[in-house]
Amino acid sequence: MNRFEILKKNKWRYISFIIGFLLLVSPFALLIRLEFWITGNLAEPSIHYACLRMPIGWIFRGAVNYLISRPEMTAFIIGVLGLSLFLGPIFCGWLCPVGAVSEAISRIIPLPNKFRIHIKDTNITSALRYGFFAGYITIYILIGLKLSGDWIGSICCRFCASTILQNLAAGIFGWLLPTYGSIEYWGTASIIVLISWLIIGGIFTYGGRGWCLFFCPLGAFSNLLYKVGAKLGFYRITYNKDKCSHCKKCNLVCPMWAIKSDHSVETALCINCKECVNICPTGALTMKWGKENATK
């Protein structure tokens, strides 16, 4: 199946990516704009008000005052996490502009796959992903316990792909509409993030989701909840080994390296993007509700 056929089969997902961008990224930021309009907030809407990182840190450091004082951020994160329990990480797979942009760049740039990073062992990929998540929450627990001192700090704002996306969007669309963000300033951390997110994580990573796999706390947390939800019988991907022809097409299209060696799907990595479901010629991979065949 060529790229055009894949594009056609997954057209709703790619349209959804554009919608996600329009909903969250300034100068559009339509969702944030709507919320600010309702609440009378005068700030310039941008993706920062749907922060993908800080509220997770606040949860783990027990910063209830922050969670209360930024209700828009708290509501957004709880919404995404709640959806992940019942519907899987559909925000990651269908709406997140940070993941969408790096995935799109990976698909657009025709780099041969032999030059791209691809770990085929889902256990190792999961270990790397949750090693990051454990480190991320450890930092916040240390901050919450006031043990961070001057030797360790939060990695939220300084190392933030959303900021880079917002600044790039300001550079691209700033002439069109007043926008938040600025493309002029690049600090060391923002250069490191740009390289990790778009160049290594996008162009040089198979599927273009390197940042999502290894550096996104919301993605990791969402997948933990998806794993629980799948066990409870909520909306999930299921694999029927009797129908599988072992053609490995699912392996080729999965942007999250979630297909195991036996062709079943690792729910700690899968973002319910349905690329594998759409390409599977035998219907071995399907989406299901209900307790029947719930993942063990």
């Binding site: 270990a127 090693g131 454990a134 991320y136 450890t138 930092i139 030797w151 700090g153």
Partner: peptide, 16 residues
């Protein structure tokens, strides 16, 4: 793999 990424993340916090 887990420890590598855990320590890399902690190091990033220190580098920050």
């Amino acid at each position: 793999a887990f420890l590598f990424m855990f320590l890399l993340t902690i190091s990033t916090g220190v580098y920050g």
